[in-house]
């Protein structure tokens, strides 16, 4: 059941986008999300989707994985369609809305597919570093995000194994009625919670024996250099955003 989730999975190849600085990637994504929120014109949105396709081509990630991400979001898309049909929006507006949502999903999946979770956390730490002015511990936030991201695949694997264990005892998720499915989910969630707490405790101990201290300044063993390409990409996003914003105002 849970095998086909590809949200948050990293795909390893060597591409220009993979080599980019995670901070630059995050900044671009933020700019892009703002862009697709304000852009409300079919011509502009089509241009944006062409740009998205171009960047997707640059990543060298198989198109199948993007399709899988979209497919995983199908319930959201269907809900959007139903809601809008109920409200009674025109088909043109609905199409535009769907186009905006799909481009947003695809663009953010570029980030997760080309950046390992630890790098995303590093990017988040950098992007949020302006909060230091308010005396917030940004490294704490980044640490919890990176730990949470790191555990997604592990927990998926584990829940698969638990589902199998319960299936062998007569509550199969796949081949059962609605009531049976509810029991199967309950029988999966309890061990999953208990084991996650245990795992968190183990992780805490493992970090402590390696003298981890949240209050000490930390270094990063990956040297994420800021290259010209990063500046270029962020600048391009900024430029497109300003252009679109100007055209919307005018």
């Amino acid at each position: 059941m849970l095998n086909n989730i590809s949200i948050g999975r990293y795909y390893e190849t060597n591409s220009k986008i993979h080599r980019m600085n995670p901070t630059a990637k995050l900044l671009s994504i933020i700019l892009f999300v703002i862009l697709s929120l304000i852009a409300n014109d079919i011509r502009i949105n089509l241009t944006i989707s062409v740009i998205v396709l171009l960047v997707m081509g640059l990543t060298h990630v198989p198109i199948k994985l993007y399709w899988k991400t979209l497919f995983g979001m199908r319930i959201l898309l269907i809900l959007v369609i139903i809601m809008n049909l109920v409200i009674g929006t025109s088909f043109q507006e609905l199409g535009l809305l769907l186009l905006r949502i799909t481009t947003m999903i695809l663009y953010t999946s570029i980030l997760t597919l080309t950046t390992p979770p630890s790098e995303i956390a590093y990017g988040i730490e950098n992007v949020l570093s302006f909060l230091k002015v308010f005396k917030l511990k940004v490294s704490k936030i980044a640490l919890s995000i990176s730990l949470a991201l790191r555990f997604i695949p592990t927990i998926i694997d584990q829940s698969n194994r638990i589902l199998k264990a319960q299936a062998s005892r007569g509550v199969d998720f796949r081949n059962s009625t609605f009531k049976g499915k509810l029991i199967a989910i309950k029988a999966m969630l309890i061990p999953l919670f208990v084991l996650s707490f245990k795992r968190a405790e183990d992780l805490g101990n493992a970090m402590e024996v390696r003298l981890y201290d949240i209050n000490k300044p930390r270094t990063n063993y990956r040297v994420n250099k800021w290259r010209f390409f990063d500046t270029y990409i962020v600048f391009m996003h900024l430029a497109i955003l300003t252009l679109v914003a100007m055209s919307m105002i005018v």
């Binding site: 584990q158 638990i162 264990a165 309950k186 309890i190 061990p191 208990v194 084991l195």
Partner: peptide, 8 residues
Amino acid sequence: EDANEQIF
């Protein structure tokens, strides 16, 4: 293999 995974 891991007995903990089935207990609830």
